[in-house]
């Protein structure tokens, strides 16, 4: 009886997992194959012959190349804003005691789950008034602030694990709070910070609404927005769209490879204790 039960559940699990795997893999396979196809279509119909012409075509467009550049600038810029601000905020939250500290921490926690996109329209109006509308720096600031709560939350938790006596040792050794952050907290929390850089970048790289609402000039669009221009009014060039999508995935993949080491560390032991 028992072994049969186990067998049935195991088989069911495998079937479900295989099904799910297919669901996830099929779009990848299609995108990859379609990018090299001579015929633009959806689904696994007639791909025509193998060709690089879709890739030639998209890279001939000045705006596509610009959109990669813009995407990198805005995503990394936003990530830098989140990380740098979070380092100082997390240090203060983790180590200092001050009035309203708990209230502020709860506020941060609240904003990690807040549907911030509901603020984008007021943001749009505000930006037009302060001349940040349709600027790279405007997008960078909003992206940075959007990721700030969750970044602070995770980084604070990792700072919390650094023993108090190590901080006190640094103080006795003559390190200023700033030096303590640079020489003690950052290296010890580095696995977590590397993972946060990855997560923030991916979120920013995939963010469509913020640049879409806060930018109007084509030459400022990041790739997340630009990719939608392949959906023309009358026809869609699916093979070019697929080629652009493949390019769109590359930075994320590269970052994953770099951060892999730290991903494992950060998710195993908390990564701090030597």
């Amino acid at each position: 009886m028992k072994t049969e039960d186990i067998k049935i559940t195991t088989i069911l699990a495998y079937i479900t997992l295989t099904f799910l795997a297919f669901l996830f893999i099929i779009p990848f396979v299609w995108v990859f194959v379609e990018g090299f196809a001579s015929v633009g279509n959806i689904g696994f119909g007639d791909f025509g012959t193998f060709t690089l012409s879709s890739y030639y075509a998209i890279f001939r467009s000045k705006y596509f190349v610009l959109s990669i550049e813009n995407g990198l600038i805005q995503s990394f810029g936003g990530t830098a804003v989140s990380i740098v601000l979070a380092i100082f905020a997390s240090y203060v939250f983790s180590r200092k005691r001050f009035p309203l500290r708990n209230a502020l921490i709860l506020t941060v926690l609240f904003f990690t789950g807040f549907p911030v996109f509901s603020l984008l329209i007021p943001m749009y109006v505000f930006y037009q008034n302060v001349n940040l509308y349709n600027t790279q720096i405007g997008v960078i600031l909003v992206l940075g602030v959007l990721n700030l709560p969750i970044t602070i939350w995770i980084m604070k938790n990792s700072f919390d694990q650094i023993p108090k006596s190590i901080e006190r040792a640094a103080m006795v050794d003559g390190a200023s709070p700033y030096q303590t952050i640079i020489h003690v907290f950052l290296p010890l929390a580095f696995p977590t910070i590397a993972v946060l850089i990855l997560l923030d970048f991916i979120t920013n790289w995939g963010n469509f609404y913020v640049p879409y609402i806060l930018l109007s000039s084509r030459h400022l669009f990041p790739i997340a927005v630009y990719i939608y221009t392949y959906f023309g009014a009358y026809s869609v060039k699916y093979n070019e769209l697929a080629a652009a999508s493949v390019i769109y995935m590359i930075p994320t993949l590269i970052l994953y490879i770099f951060a892999q080491k730290y991903l494992i560390k950060a998710f195993s032991v908390g990564g701090v204790k030597g």
């Binding site: 006596s165 006190r168 040792a169 050794d173 030597g274």
Partner: peptide, 23 residues
Amino acid sequence: FQDYALYPHLTVRNNIAFPLKMR
């Protein structure tokens, strides 16, 4: 310190040198 509080990410050399580097 009771638990030594050495800097886990630094070698013995750099642990000892830390106070001097800070100044």
